[in-house]
Design a protein around this nucleic acid. Sequence first.
DNA 1: CAGACGTGGTC
DNA 2: TGACCAAGTCT
Length: 364
Amino acid sequence: MNIPLFRQDLISWFEKEQRDLPWRKDKNPYKVWVSEIMLQQTRVDTVIPFFNRFMEWFPTLEELAEADEEKVLKAWEGLGYYSRVRNLQSAVREVAAEYNGVVPDTLEAISKLKGVGPYTAGAILSIAYGKPEPAVDGNVMRVLSRILLIEEDIAKPRTRKTFEEAVRRLIDETHTSSFNQALMELGAMICTPGTPACLLCPVREHCEAFAEGVQSRLPVKNQQKKTRDVPIAAAVISNSRNEILIRKRPSKGLLANLWEFPNYEVHASVATKRESFRQQFQEQLQVIPQLGEHLISIDHTFSHLVWKMEVFLGKAEEVSENIMNSHQMKWVAESEVEGYAFPVSHQKIWKAYQLLKSQSTNQR
DNA sequence: CAGACGTGGTC
DNA sequence: TGACCAAGTCT
């Protein structure tokens, strides 16, 4: 390959054709950082409104550092992979305290920050600081697997190093930001999975896979993880003051620190989900709930599992303060429920509840 | 290393 | 409709 010509063709195309995205208006390291975290495993179209609102709520690194975690999680509600934003705030606080609020510009320092892995480190260093570091994501591996006809399995963690070496060889050290972003932009716009738009590609003359006509079978990617079903019984429980019972999830694991309606995993030996809920609720809170009608069934698919939820209506009273606290539970007015950050599956529960309520009101 | 970790869009 | 995907990181 003619590397200088490849660089020129790639970068010229990017400078001319790049999308107008909110995080490309300037190279503020904080904004670049936030955008890169949001973009992890997440589409550009999804990220745009989240990014804009996040910058309204937390315009500077200092404001994010000083914000309540509750508000930060609310800003991330619906984006997924919530540990990203908890790690981000933790890292931002680290930068505020240890680096005088300036995002570090060395690979060693920036890589120590929570949530900043090899890709994000390279992306921030190259985009915000012009450092010639590789930023190898799924796009870059797909694009370069075709251009260089590399048949290593990109699902294997070790393979990333192969592509980092390739980028170090190819990168234009005077235009690191455009070079790295161009590789990703090309992967998103032209060199797509499946059937790439090679006739529109600015670097097809440099592409070995195109020359061989094998672009559609690259990259090689072996991985198929199955999901397992998790049966769950949940309920929207209200008290005589029309307050709703919610609880905060544990600080580690799935959907950490988000809020939810009380629910329990149901075991196969239990006859019905309603009975299972009643038993587990009573055992945990020392109160017998009055379970009413079935509200909604929700199947919610995660990356690695599926919640098969049956949701009921219910009423309860007099849960002791001690028990409430030990289970991170609280009663909240209906008008305040939406101030808490819920996973999407539980947002659906709340919408179903409100719909039912508005219908029963209209009937009168 | 393999699996956990979310969600919404696409073919 | 059910994979498979999308600018990864942590354990």
